[in-house]
């Protein structure tokens, strides 16, 4: 286990280093992406632009700018170009909303995905399977912002069942926290539910044809025990891997559109605002933070693999 952790940590450092360089360079090669031009304002003179370049270090070689930025990120002192706000503080401020969104949605899409996938596999070829297949495809095909907008209009604006937008912290008012997140949870989950149910159905159908399943049935185990204890357990292994990566993606700021539509003020919304203003420091930090979560959750899923399937050994 120690060796596994060390190897994974080393991998993480390499991944973060590569991603940080790649992200930083992207914003250097954008034509007229010089932040000094935007910071200087519309009536800026070349003198003002030069002063800003000096002040922010935009006149230094790219590798120096990169090292300066990374040093500020690692020491927690990195500030955004446009608003000059501490980026880490902003991410910390948005994290509760993003975690609430991602956590609730991930539970929903996993549970519903498992339920519908299992049902579909067990009823393969029947009418209900076909109906579920169509529903899954609809779910996969519907972009989350469409679902979010329609749900918001119908259930919040027209019927007033849910609030129109915003986020209330769990500590402040648990009921309002729940009410404010119901629509975002389902809007974000629908696409994943459709996808997960199709993947699980396929896995289960493959597993149902395995020899050991036939053996378990021949031994006289009940169908429920065979399905839950053998088929579902084995079929869930690849799904867990997907779930971990998707969850990390969402919590790392991937639910941009849902956060924007529902105005949750989470990390994704901050990412969207930063991208729109080409504000490199927040984008860099959010990308690295997302990558960090993906690597860490991926390692955790590997550990979970061992629990689900004892034949698997931990190797980096």
């Amino acid at each position: 286990m120690t060796r596994f952790i060390i190897q994974r940590t080393a991998q993480m450092v390499v991944v973060l280093f590569c991603i940080s360089i790649f992200t930083f360079l992207i914003f250097q090669v954008i034509p007229n992406g010089n932040p000094a031009l935007r910071l200087a304002g519309q009536a800026a003179t070349p003198q003002t632009i030069a002063a800003i370049e000096r002040q922010w270090g935009f006149d230094k070689p790219i590798y120096v700018q990169y090292l300066d930025t990374m040093q500020k990120i690692l020491t927690g002192s990195v500030i955004s170009y446009s608003q000059q706000i501490n980026v880490l503080d902003q991410i910390k401020r948005g994290l509760p909303a993003t975690i609430s969104l991602a956590g609730g949605a991930a539970v929903i899409w996993l549970l519903f995905g498992m339920a519908l996938g299992t049902l579909s596999a067990l009823r393969a070829g029947r009418f209900s399977d076909r109906v579920l297949a169509v529903l899954s495809l609809v779910g996969i095909s519907m972009p989350s912002f469409v679902v979010a907008t329609v749900a918001l209009y119908l259930l919040a604006y027209k019927v007033h069942v849910f609030p129109l937008s915003g986020y209330v912290s769990l500590a402040q008012d648990p009921w309002q926290w729940f009410l404010h997140l119901v629509l975002p949870w389902f809007s974000l989950s629908i696409i994943y539910v459709g996808f997960y149910s199709r993947v699980l159905r396929s896995n289960m159908l493959d597993t149902l044809a395995e020899d050991y399943v036939r053996t378990a049935t021949a031994k006289g185990l009940s169908r429920r025990r065979v399905i839950v204890g053998h088929v579902l357990r084995a079929s869930l292994i690849p799904l867990m891997s997907l779930w971990g990566l998707d969850f990390a993606g969402v919590i790392g700021g991937g639910a941009i559109l849902v956060e924007v539509v529902f105005n949750l003020n989470g990390v994704g919304q901050y990412a969207a605002e930063s991208i729109q203003t080409l504000d490199v420091p927040p984008i860099l930090v959010i990308v690295m933070y997302g990558a960090f979560l993906v690597v860490v959750l991926s390692a955790m899923i590997d550990v979970l693999y061992v629990v689900l399937d004892p034949r698997v050994r931990l190797t980096a």
Partner: peptide, 14 residues
């Protein structure tokens, strides 16, 4: 500096 992404898309569907 408007966040056009979500808003514009929302407007489209509204």
């Amino acid at each position: 500096r408007r966040l056009a992404a979500g808003a514009a898309l929302s407007a489209l569907f509204v």
